[in-house]
């Protein structure tokens, strides 16, 4: 059932981003050719390059705005609005609904980041040989720093995981705020906003009380480690921290959807 939910959420994701992703990549490709006009040899070329760059930047910004709207709307309209009539009468468990929305949201964000990074490579007038040179340069750099290639590869994956975890925490915080807003019988949208601020404050206070001592303990632990293993440990501790906060947000959201849902 979870796979089926995911299938439908991913379809709505493709619907939402189906235009902006190719558009960003296409604009990057255009910039690759117009960028040459910036050398000042012709005013027309310069103007074209300027406009192309402006549109490209605007599209990238729009893409991330769409991503945030997507995350909020898929949850608010999809589970707490009219579409919730469908989703909550499907024979699935509430946690599956939340998890499917979350996974889709993180996937959409990561894909947007990938598109943004990819578009930069598209703009830069690089061929395959340039790309190979870049990699061999990075390789030599790591060798210089005495870092093995496996550590570098694992480290990259770890950083990506950390990124995903921090996106997840951010989105779950939004979900919890919307779910808390749903507990009120009136002004639910406004109460969601108030709840969002409330959750922020609460997590800061909690962080100060609970996490500070844990943090310094872990900090001293990590300080003892140097080089790659220290890096791995730091990243994993950070991921674990995000996971704990995520779990709290997720549990709160799931509880409200399971026991306190009131679609009126």
């Amino acid at each position: 059932m979870f796979g089926k939910l995911l299938k439908y959420d991913c379809r709505s994701m493709l619907k939402q981003f189906g235009f902006i992703w190719p558009a960003a990549l296409a604009l990057a490709l255009i910039n690759r050719f117009t960028l040459g006009g910036l050398d000042g040899s012709s005013a027309v070329g310069e103007t074209a390059a300027g406009i192309a760059m402006l549109v490209y930047v605007a599209i990238l910004m729009a893409m991330f705005v769409i991503a945030v709207i997507f995350v909020i709307q898929r949850f608010y309209k999809g589970l707490l609005g009219d579409e919730g009539y469908l989703m909550h009468t499907l024979p699935v468990k509430p946690w599956q609904l939340v998890a499917s929305k979350l996974l889709t949201a993180v996937l959409a964000t990561m894909a947007s980041v990938l598109v943004a990074v990819g578009s930069i490579f598209l703009i830069a007038p690089m061929g395959w040989s340039d790309l190979m040179n870049l990699f061999s340069f990075l390789g030599r750099l790591f060798t210089h720093w005495n870092i093995q290639a496996t550590h570098a590869a694992v480290g990259t994956v770890e950083v990506i995981l950390l990124m995903m975890a921090s996106f997840a925490v951010g989105y779950l915080e939004l979900y919890l705020a919307m779910a808390l807003g749903h507990l009120f019988s009136k002004h639910r949208a406004a109460m969601s906003f108030v709840a969002f601020i409330g959750v922020q404050v609460a997590i800061r206070i909690l962080g100060n009380i609970v996490l500070q001592p844990v943090d310094s303990l872990l900090g001293s632990l990590v300080e003892g480690l140097h080089g790659p293993s220290g890096f791995h440990a730091t990243v994993w501790i950070a991921i674990a921290g995000e996971a704990v906060v995520s779990a709290i947000y997720f549990a709160g959201t799931e509880y409200i959807l399971r026991r306190r849902l009131n679609l009126e």
């Binding site: 009219d82 919730g84 009539y85 499907l90 468990k93």
Partner: peptide, 15 residues
């Protein structure tokens, strides 16, 4: 989930 699998619901709105 079980009861939802045996209930067919026509709501009072478009969803």
């Amino acid at each position: 989930p079980y009861t939802k699998s045996i209930i067919s619901y026509l709501p009072d709105r478009m969803y």
